[in-house]
Amino acid sequence: MDAILLQILNGLDKGGAYALIALGLTLTFGTLGIVNFAHGALFMLGAFCTVALQSVLTISTRVRDESITFFEAYKEVPYLVTWFGDTGQLIIDYVVPISVLVTIPVMLLIGILFERGLIRFFYNRPHAEQILVTFGLAIVLQEVIKVIFGANPIPVAAPPAVAGSADLGVILGLGGNLSYPWWRLIYLASSAVIISGVFAFLNLTTYGMVVRAGMADRETVQFLGINIQRRFTVVFGLAAVVAGLAGALYTPILTPNYHIGMDFLVLSFVVVVVGGMGSLPGAVAAGFLLGILQSFASLNEVKSIFPGIDQIIIYLVAVAVLLARPRGLLGRKGVMES
């Protein structure tokens, strides 16, 4: 029982990341009709917003390391700690939550710059060309990050208060053997909040309503005198923010490196296809579903029957879903169909 519950949590956690990326992917696809292969790179840029903030906060001065006596060794002491002592250290410890404040404006700006600077020239081009140009953009971004931050993964820690694990068994009254890392629970909660926020924005605000109307029938909305293009640009920025936040908050779970985005990109496309092209609820549902399936496929009991199933389960499910429902789980007629 515990094992099943833990795997569900693992799946939800992973699914949270998949869902956030897939959500942004579907948003750009649904609004701008762009197949954005640079979306994984936006996830990576979000993670590196946190890394960059950490580097800024830990700008250090070199101090003689007294523990080594036989030569002059130095260790780095951050200025924040020198100036503010424990308060300085506290700010450094809370770099991940603080980075959320930085990530949102930075990613919004990056998203809008991409759309205005590059993507808009490809609206009326074939999908193949869109894929090529966005994939190229992803490679450029990766290499830029590699030049600045190096090829090695850079560890980012969760705040010490939530670095350990929660005794879920005790909290939920299920016995003592069930514990789960605090940060992963926080990630799960954050992804739920972000997803709800995006849905609320699209469904409960007038701005969102116009965007949805534009997604359904762009020309009619334009005839009504609305500059739908500008709104779509903002939506692209929003998609970048969602992907960026997914990346920034994921840093304590997975040590970020320059190709972290590519690792997620392919899976996210599968999630979008399984969920149904252009369907936001479909992307979210498929994200969580595939995350949970992947977790269960890694159970030893399952792997002893089907060795290696954990590596291919997602693709098997994708094949099965597409055979049964060619438009994906919640796909609508007419999307990406001429």
Partner: peptide
């Protein structure tokens, strides 16, 4: 593998 959570949770039980 990066995220080892699905391999770590079975250890506990």
């Amino acid at each position: 593998a990066g995220d080892f959570s699905q391999y770590l949770t079975p250890v506990l039980n």
